[in-house]
Design a protein around this nucleic acid. Sequence first.
RNA 1: GCCGCAGUGGCGGAAUUGGCAGACGCCCAGGACUUAAAAUCCUGUGAUGGCAACAUCGUACCGGUUCGAUCCCGGUUUGCGGCACCA
Length: 801
Amino acid sequence: MKYDFKAIEKKWQDIWDEKKIFAASNDYSKPKFYPLVEFPYPSAQGLHVGHPRPYTAMDIVARKRRMQGYNVLLPMGWDAFGLPTENYAIKMGIHPAVVTRENIEKFRAQIKALGLNFDWGREVDTTDPAYYKWTQWIFLQLFKKGLAYKKEMAVNWCTSCKVVLANEEVVGGVCERCSGEVVRKVKSQWMLGITQYAQRLIDDLDGVDYVERVKTQQINWIGRSEGANADFGTTEGDVITVFTTRPDTLFGATYMVLAPEHPLLEKWAGKLTNAAEIKAYQDAAARKSDFERTEVAKDKTGVCLDGVTAINPVTEKEIPIYISDYVLASYGTGAIMAVPGHDSRDWEFARKFGLPIIEVVSGGDIEKEAFVDIETGTMVNSGFLDGLSVAEAKKQISAWLEDNDKGKSTVSYKLRDWVFSRQRYWGEPIPIIHCEKCGFVPLDESELPLMLPEVQSYQTTDDGQSPLSALTDWVNVPCPVCGAPAKRETDTMPQWAGSSWYFLRYCDPDNSDEIASKEALEYWMPVDWYNGGMEHTTLHLLYSRFWHKFLFDIGVVSTKEPYSRRTSHGMILGEDGVKMSKSRGNVVNPDEVVRQYGADTLRLYEMFIGDFEKAATWSGASIRGCERFLARVWGLADIVSGAGGLSPGLEGKFHKTIKKVTEDIESLKFNTAIAALMTLINDIYEKKSITKGELRIFLLLLCPFTPHIAEEIWERMGPGGMAALQSWPGFDEEKCKDDTVEIALQISGKIRARIDVPTDADREAVIALAKSAPEIAGAIDGKNIVKEIFVPGKLVNIVVS
RNA sequence: GCCGCAGUGGCGGAAUUGGCAGACGCCCAGGACUUAAAAUCCUGUGAUGGCAACAUCGUACCGGUUCGAUCCCGGUUUGCGGCACCA
């Protein structure tokens, strides 16, 4: 009988669909398991082979857990607002909603063709008004709690297209589309106060099971640092507050540096005799991104303020003030005290501008480089701090600053508030009305969803406003409070909005009265296992944790954290070893692989390709190994003999394989689980027969990985029911052990021989056996034995001198 | 530049609380089957030397700790992800 994967896969996909085999049950008495994959952005290109990797992985986990008796919710949806669809719409003149609908259809069909067991009854779409009603609702709650506010922020502005650009659309400082000049334009933007949750976002990582690199990256991104604010006087009487992590070096502060955007510069405009030079520098800085500005490799630049100087609060000496683009307005207070002796950026800057470098911590050579060690140095040239350690000096100077009312200890975070406005069409409208008299007025909740209106053009207006601002009928409304003429907010939300809470909606996707019912949230949340790409660690993952914490605070959800466990998959690279992209022409389309080899082979290959957590290179040739394996699986039906259970020759191997597959699935080691199944099938073929009982177990182990072929053979061999709904096979720990084990015999760390010893033999017995082995006996004869090392089941090492 | 991760045969990868490096698969070579080819099956396959048993070397590079290092420490280097309006 030929293995006709096309017919088999179609047959089972139809059965799963029609019978809704994988729909989560609303029986809240059963133990639940809620695994989650990141819902895709439905792009026009369709799926590429990178998508199925995490999907198949969680599908395998879900199928296995279902067989272990859990009520499983494995949902899928669409993160469908966003820039590429909007740009496509502008180019083709098609409504983004139409494009989105088509793309979703395509994605859904492709995903179904892979035999993934998503619960299609719970699909969500962030662009559906029934969904974004609740995205808007959450925004209103944030606004009411003061966590959404407006602030002047810079946006990228293409001077030629006259359009606001995303950072991604700015390539090398020019517009990606027209190569026109890009400048930073200041605009009033909605912001979300994620920084107020900074400490909790760090602290609560202790209570969740995230892979270490994700935790570390989030902690570093939030970037907590302890230090002090210090107030420097100026000859103008104004105070410049700086944040420093090294208040101990205050005596060594020989100049100050302000960010080019610092507000005091405008105030002092009249006093500065080199105003033109300053203006030119500010303009140049405005064209650079923060990323370009902080690159240390480049030469330090800056301008000294002529006409205003600062006063070091502890030495009371006058020191010059510079502006330089290596100081960012967005971090700390936008101003620093420069201590060139003990900060390498300040050191470079001081060298270039011929500024004095004073040593205040001894231990290095400040003629050669800044001395930044905080463990070993001793304070010098620092008045009352002299002779102290850095740590002690920090304490004393902080106390001095507070006592003299010149600053205080403080904590600063690198995390910045979230810029939440987009001057774009294809996003959720922000449900706020601006009234001259009443300020920003939230739309009444009864008016949600605030529908995204139809427009003529999806392009940003000539003055950088959202396309919605052209709709005067829509924009001009009476103020809900005082009735005076007022205007709607015309910016839309970023794509991150809809994806910050979608996992809640899956719990109860059709609810029109709430985000989801209390009972559904109580039962399903938190997500038990969320797998996604490392590239989402610092934005989506952090944003959604922030929203969830906010929803916890206002009593909508009852868990502090949305996800119990977070794992991360590696990317699938093209055959040339680099990221797949249309421009490189190395994209592999899963449809073609499915057509040629079948979904089961694709699934198996994607899981076998390598370490799930690392990037892997696609290989058209290697798929053949998985194809051969499935052909051998299909062939098992031909060598069935005997109905019974495990045969003597294979019993131990079956127990070991069950154990290996059971454990490896939970620890994301799909590749070695498959290798174990391959080893087992090799053993079966060597024996040339398999009992019905053995085949049954083999199929159950295989079922999560390659469900179609497993179901088909299961059905043909006739035990009845579906493989996917059987119980997961168990194993006996005792039967996983062999009677004897091969150990290595070493002399002073060099392997000299290998022998078999009883698995349960003790140290003395094994060492005696080792010494009697001819290679060892000869080597230790007449030598002085210094040490005997025994590692059970591994080796004996006899150290001689 | 900053933060995070990684570097193992011709290739994808396995093995780490420090204990036999290279499981499993691909490619390749030889053999079986076939008129022949494909498919399939069997055998071999890190490098060097040797008829062989075997020996020596070998986990990016340099150094350290240890009876023993792919694993721990210090340094270097290369590649990948992120850097806040791509998703």
